[in-house]
Structures are given as C-alpha cells and as structure tokens.
Deep mutational scan, measured.
Amino acid sequence: QNEKLANELKSLLDELNVNELATGSLNTYYKRTIKISGQKAMYALKSKDFKKMSEAKYQLQKIYNEIDEA
C-alpha cells in the first residue's frame, strides 16, 4: 500500500513544474501554496511515512484543482 501511494505521489510531483508555471498570472497564494505543497511531498516521499504521504498527496491534488479552476 505504501508503494502504491508513493507512486501516486511521485506522479503528482512530476506535474509540479507544469502547475507551478500555470500560477504565473495567478494570485501569490497559489505560487506560495504549490511550492510549499511540493516541498512537503518530497519530504514525505523521503520519510516513507504513510500518513505524511497521504496528507501531501491530498494537498497537491487540492492545489492542482484550485489552479485548474482559477
């Protein structure tokens, strides 16, 4: 289960640069939040902690959705 979550989180991290570029014309909230979420996700992957990875995955998905809707 950890392996599956780690792969999903890696996949979301692969999209980080594209989504970060998409924040160029948006409010600074999005820029700041996506950077923080990305850092948390990288830390969670290194720690291999299921709870941290779950939270990081949720945060990344949430900010990606917010950027898409903005």
Rank of each mutant, 00 (worst) to 15 (best):
Q59K: 05
N7S: 11
S37P: 01
Q59I: 10
L26F: 04
N27F: 06
Q39I: 14
R32M: 14
K4M: 09
K31C: 09
N17Y: 14
K10W: 05
T28D: 14
E20F: 14
K40L: 13
A70H: 05
I67E: 01
K35G: 05
K62Q: 10
D49W: 02
Q39N: 07
Y64T: 03
T28V: 13
S54W: 10
K40W: 10
K31M: 07
L21A: 10
L5G: 01
L16I: 08
Y29K: 05
L60Q: 01
E66P: 01
A56Y: 02
K40H: 06
L26H: 04
N2S: 11
L5F: 02
E55R: 07
V18K: 13
G38V: 15
I34Y: 02
D14M: 13
A41H: 01
K4A: 11
T23D: 05
L12V: 02
Y30A: 02
G38Y: 14
S54P: 02
I36D: 07
K52L: 15
K62C: 10
F50N: 08
S11Y: 07
G24L: 15
T33M: 15
L13W: 03
Y43E: 15
I67A: 02
A41G: 03
A56E: 01
Y43S: 14
Y64D: 00
T33R: 14
K62M: 07
K62F: 05
A6V: 11
K10T: 04
T33E: 12
A41F: 03
M53I: 04
A44M: 01
L21N: 06
Q61W: 05
L45W: 07
N2P: 06
E55L: 09
S37D: 03
V18L: 12
I63Q: 01
D68T: 14
Q59W: 15
S25K: 12
Q59R: 07
R32F: 12
N19D: 04
L13M: 05
A44R: 00
A22Y: 07
V18Y: 12
I34Q: 00
D68G: 11
N17G: 12
K62T: 05
Y58K: 11
N65E: 09
D68E: 13
K35Q: 09
S11F: 06
L16A: 01
M53W: 01
M42H: 09
L21H: 06
F50Q: 06
Q61R: 06
L45F: 05
L12Y: 02
T28W: 14
E3Q: 10
R32C: 15
N27M: 06
N17F: 14
E69L: 14
S47P: 00
L45V: 03
K48N: 13
I67H: 02
K48R: 14
K48S: 04
Y58A: 12
A44V: 02
K62R: 09
S25N: 14
Y29Q: 03
L16W: 10
M53A: 01
E15F: 12
T23A: 14
I36L: 10
N17K: 14
K35F: 09
Y43W: 12
S54D: 05
A56N: 01
G38L: 15
N27T: 11
Q1Y: 10
K48I: 03
A44G: 02
L60I: 03
K35N: 05
Y29D: 03
N27D: 11
K52Q: 11
A41N: 00
G24A: 15
M53T: 00
R32W: 13
Y58Q: 10
Y64A: 05
E3P: 03
S37N: 08
F50V: 08
K35M: 09
A70M: 09
T23R: 04
L26R: 03
Q61N: 05
N17P: 13
S54H: 07
T28C: 15
E69W: 12
L16E: 00
S11D: 10
Q1G: 07
